[in-house]
Design a protein around this nucleic acid. Structure first.
Ligand SMILES: NC(=O)c1ccc[n+]([C@@H]2O[C@H](COP(=O)([O-])OP(=O)(O)OC[C@H]3O[C@@H](n4cnc5c(N)ncnc54)[C@H](O)[C@@H]3O)[C@@H](O)[C@H]2O)c1
Ligand SMILES: NC(=O)c1ccc[n+]([C@@H]2O[C@H](COP(=O)([O-])OP(=O)(O)OC[C@H]3O[C@@H](n4cnc5c(N)ncnc54)[C@H](O)[C@@H]3O)[C@@H](O)[C@H]2O)c1
Lengths: 221, 221
DNA sequence: TTTGCCTTGTTATTTAATTAACAAATAAAA
DNA sequence: TTTTATTTGTTAATTAAATAACAAGGCAAA
């Protein structure tokens, strides 16, 4: 399909923003708003109106000149772009503090994107259910991922087990991975990988705080 | 100071990578390695050796031609750049699932960066201690942040309370904020803000998984 | 000693992302 | 009816980041 192919070349940052626009739009819709201007979206997201218009241009959406964008239409279009028609199932490996927090947080948030299984090695956790998500033994990963047609895995095991878990998930046929472990993992090209490390983020904040302070000091002199 | 001022202009991405290099280097050091090549660091981080060398060039560090970089020296230099001499204290607001997971995770990881206080409004949580971090009532935020000289705040309250919490933290004199709430918050210019939304990340992974599948399908034809 | 092989450090080029600039459209006000 | 204000959509320019290219140094083997 010609149209869908073009979404292939959307900037990564645009994809992330589309997800955020949609959330903001859903909120506006629930408050009874039907149209919205680029500068309104921009204010909510703390970006510029130009950026919003440019993103919408890239996905081929047009607003009305003095009414702005139709919120429902835009939500639907963003859904067509970032959601999968049939929905995508997600598994989470490592039902510890972070894993449980994530399950708790995600459950019911997106109907096209659902955490349907958890895995752990700790016998105390296996067999439990968290917010409707059953916890299976790690040995059954391949079996269950294949059976349930799970395509995305979230890794929240201890760092030293991250690589092994990644390998198991890939072997089970997973297509996308989200690694919350500080250990960088290695996956084949055909698996899409996102890694996020909270300590790095905190250290970055600390760096800029420090930097601004030393700037201030040198300005005083 | 001339030198420190130059760190001002380091690319944001370089700052994030320095934090990651350091972690990898600490691991190597603990295994008895004394020197490391750019391509070794690159392999660990899944980036290119050129990127590593460029980053190190930007911070003004030189290696030895055929021995690579002195690990201890490099760790110290990165520390000089991203750490604050006296250390920076952090507070976390919202001691729920995510807040507790974070405290558990961070505690003892970095001695120059320490979570020293938690805040909540739930009377059941106030007065407890998590991993040595006391939980105070939200009303005492300003008092305690000033007394303890806390400079960074992490927001993990329910989304609808995020803006209010941000305002309270700013009023208390915080200099950097890390918002894990899906609600974008507004802060004055002098406060450094990082926001991270896990649903956006997951939706991004889902998008690329979907995209690659539709590419595959159209390739078959 | 000489040759070849690695590895660093730096400049040049390319690619990605953001921001600026502005024409076109049109509703509302004069 | 004409003017003014506002907002979209798009192209052009700028800025940020990554990658490529390559000179220079120096160890190791021949
Ligand atoms: N807690 C946080 O806020 C936080 C933040 C960022 C990153 N992380 C990272 O996330 C990971 C998990 O953190 P946590 O605080 O939830 O730790 P945790 O110890 O509470 O949970 C880890 C879970 O993984 C299970 N596990 C261990 N090995 C396994 C394996 N091979 N297969 C399946 N399950 C396995 C354990 O039984 C445990 O239930 C760590 O790597 C940590 O670095 C945590
Ligand atoms: N759980 C996750 O994995 C996860 C992931 C990403 C983002 N988030 C976001 O993080 C936030 C917290 O998630 P959670 O799962 O920990 O929720 P939670 O309900 O378990 O915890 C929220 C805590 O904040 C406290 N609180 C409420 N209002 C407060 C206020 N005004 N001041 C201080 N404390 C207050 C509550 O008493 C509670 O203890 C939410 O906004 C959520 O969207 C959570």
């Amino acid at each position: 399909m010609e149209e869908k192919d073009s979404f292939n070349h959307l900037p990564h940052k645009t994809i992330a923003r589309l997800s955020q626009y949609r959330r903001a739009l859903l909120l506006c819709l629930s408050r009874g708003k039907s149209h919205i201007f680029s500068h309104e979206i921009a204010t909510i997201q703390h970006i510029t109106p130009v950026q919003v218009r440019r993103d919408l241009m890239l996905i081929g959406y047009s607003g009305t000149l003095r009414k702005g964008y139709n919120i429902r239409e835009l939500i639907d279009l963003i859904g067509n772009i970032i959601d999968s028609d049939e929905g995508i199932k997600v598994a989470i490996v490592g039902m510890g503090n972070l894993g449980r927090a994530l399950i708790n947080y995600f459950s019911g948030k997106r109907h096209k994107l659902e955490i349907v299984a958890g895995f752990d090695t700790n016998p105390d956790k296996i067999g439990n259910t968290m917010n409707g998500v059953p916890c299976y033994p790690a040995e059954r990963m391949k079996e269950i991922i294949e059976r349930e047609k799970i395509e995305i895995g979230i890794i929240t095991v201890p760092a030293q087990n991250a690589s092994q878990t990644a390998n198991e998930l890939v072997a089970a046929g997973i297509k996308g991975l989200l690694n919350y472990t500080p250990k960088p993992i290695d996956v084949p090209d055909y698996v899409y990988l996102e890694e996020y490390d909270m300590i790095t983020t905190l250290e970055k904040v600390a760096f800029y705080v420090k930097m601004r302070q030393s700037e201030e000091e040198s300005n005083k002199k």
